[in-house]
Every structure is written in structure tokens, then in C-alpha cells.
Amino acid sequence: MNKLTRTLLVGISAFVALGTLAACSGGSSNQATSSSASPTTTTAAPTAFPQSARYIADMTAADGKTMTIGISVDGDQVAAYACNGTDDEAWFFGNQTDGSIDIKSRFRDTLQADFDGTNVDGDLNMNGVAYEFTAKPVTGAAGMYTAELDGARASWVVREDGSAVGVQINGAVLDAVDVQQLNDAQFRAQVRNKRQLQQAAQITRLSNGAMSSTINGTDVTPTLVNGSFRLG
């Protein structure tokens, strides 16, 4: 083989090798690009609630404010109570549909939540403050309780460990103004935040299993709230 022929063969071999390397490199690049693509995220659909159940959650807002919520479900009926234990509270009444809750309090607070098969995950807006929560199922004496005496009402959320948080309201002011004409900010200032609220008296469980407390110094027997409970 002469020198010219050897030179041509070497050049052809180098060209073929370079083409093969480029093809392999291109394949690797495509695979990396594909694997780096963001996965598609999906949100699990709500699950049907049990026929009867109670749930409780403690939560903290971004500004540090705290709130506790109790939720009771019976069939499609829902009752929920949220309070901070000192000077804010809201009752929520309505229905759940296919494991989803979307209800509003009479003071324009909102509660939206879904049942995930175990817990109730949701968003609560109280007086313009947003909270996120995961309410876990509770049993035994844990749940929401309320008692009324001479126009005053005390309500509590009692946790499974026996600790409780509650607020007492001494009358409401919904009829003081034409509330339909007020926007949310006006409503909070003129109606919602003018309620007479105070920390509820301690609630205790008696040896017979009943709950006991006082309203303005008078003994009362709080009752356990179920999903069909409604205020008049």
C-alpha cells in the first residue's frame, strides 16, 4: 500500500469515528434534557367522609396569630367552630359534598376544606387573617361544646388530651345596621369587631363523663356539638 492510500484511509477512519462520537453525544444530551423536565403534579381528589366524625386542629397564621378549629360531620351536615381562646370566634354551618366543605360564618369568615381519607385539610379566613390547617380525627370526649345562659353563649374546642380553648360571646350586633350594604372591611369594623367577646371559663369533665363550666359565674352543662347542630 503506497503512502497516499494509507493517508486517505486514515482520514476516512477519523471522519467515521468523529461522526459516531457526535451521534452518541447527541443521544446523551436528549436524554438529560428529557429527564430534567418538571414532573406533572396532581392533587388527590377528596374522599367521602365517614357517616359521623369529629376533627380538631391548632394553627398559626403568617403573622403569628393562633386559632383552633373543631369540625363535626354527620352525613352531609357540617358544624365547625374556630376560636383563639380570648377575643375571636366563628361558627360555621352547612353541608359537605363528596368530601369537600365550602361554608361561611354569619360574620363573613370562610372555611374551605377537603377530606383526604384520614384528615381534613383546609383554609380558614378569620377577620381577614388566613390560616392553613390539617385537622386530625378525634374520639372520646374530644370535640366542640357549647352552652347558653341569659343571652350569653360560651363555646369550646376540647382536645383529646383534655385541654380546651374557648370564647364567650355576650350578645350579637347583627341587627344594628343594614349589613347588606357594607363591604367586608366596613362589616368587620362596624359589626364583627364590635361583638362583646371574652375568654370562656374553664371547662372540665366530671366523673360521670359530663362537661361542666360557668357563664358569668353561673354553672352550666356544655353539650357536645354534632354536624347537625345549628344556632337559632
Score class of each variant (00 low, 15 high):
Val129Met: 08
Ile69Pro: 00
Thr110Val: 02
Gln181Met: 13
Val173Glu: 14
Ser163Gly: 11
Asn2Asp: 15
Ala14Cys: 10
Met59Leu: 07
Gly209Val: 03
Tyr81Lys: 06
Tyr81Ala: 04
Thr139Ile: 07
Gln180Asp: 05
Ala53Tyr: 06
Val225Ala: 04
Leu4Lys: 12
Arg195Thr: 15
Gln77Asn: 13
Phe93Glu: 10
Arg205Cys: 08
Ser155Gln: 09
Pro137Met: 14
Ala90Met: 14
Ala176Arg: 11
Thr146Cys: 07
Thr204Trp: 00
Ser34Glu: 15
Ala185Ser: 06
Pro137His: 12
Gln51Ala: 14
Ala82Thr: 02
Gln198Val: 10
Asp58Ile: 07
Ala23His: 12
Pro46Ala: 14
Gln51Phe: 11
Gly94Ala: 01
Gly99Trp: 09
Ala53Trp: 05
Asp74Gln: 11
Asp116Cys: 01
Arg106Asp: 09
Phe15Lys: 04
Ala201Glu: 15
Gln199Arg: 13
Met126Asn: 02
Asn216Met: 12
Leu8Asp: 10
Val220His: 08
Gly151Arg: 09
Thr66Pro: 00
Asn95Phe: 10
Ser38Tyr: 14
Met144Ile: 09
Phe93Met: 09
Val191Tyr: 06
Ala141His: 14
Gln199Gly: 07
Trp156Ile: 00
Arg230Asn: 08
Asn216Phe: 04
Ala62Cys: 07
Leu231Val: 00
Val167Phe: 05
Lys65Gln: 14
Gly94Trp: 02
Ile101Gln: 08
Gln181Pro: 00
Thr20Tyr: 15
Thr214Lys: 10
Gly217Met: 03
Ser163Leu: 13
Tyr145Asp: 06
Gln181Val: 08
Ile203Lys: 13
Thr214Leu: 05
Ala201Cys: 03
Leu124His: 08
Gly94Cys: 01
Val179Thr: 11
Leu149Ala: 12
Phe187Gln: 02
Asp58Ser: 07
Ile56Leu: 13
Ile103Phe: 03
Gly27Arg: 15
Asp116Ile: 01
Lys104Val: 14
Ser72Asp: 01
Asp88Met: 15
Thr146Gly: 12
Thr43Met: 09
Phe49Ser: 04
Thr204Leu: 04
Thr214Gly: 00
Gly64Glu: 09
Leu111Val: 01
Met59Thr: 13
Asp219Gln: 12
Gly85Ser: 03
Gln168Asn: 08
Gly128Glu: 03
Thr97Pro: 00
Thr97Asn: 13
Gly19Lys: 12
Gln196Cys: 03
Thr214Glu: 14
Gly143Val: 01
Ser155Asp: 14
Pro137Cys: 10
Ala185Lys: 12
Thr110Asn: 06
Gln96Tyr: 03
Ser25Thr: 14
Phe15Glu: 07
Gly122Val: 04
Ser38Phe: 13
Leu224Gln: 11
Leu182Ala: 02
Val177Ser: 02
Thr5Ser: 10
Gly26Asn: 14
Asn125Arg: 09
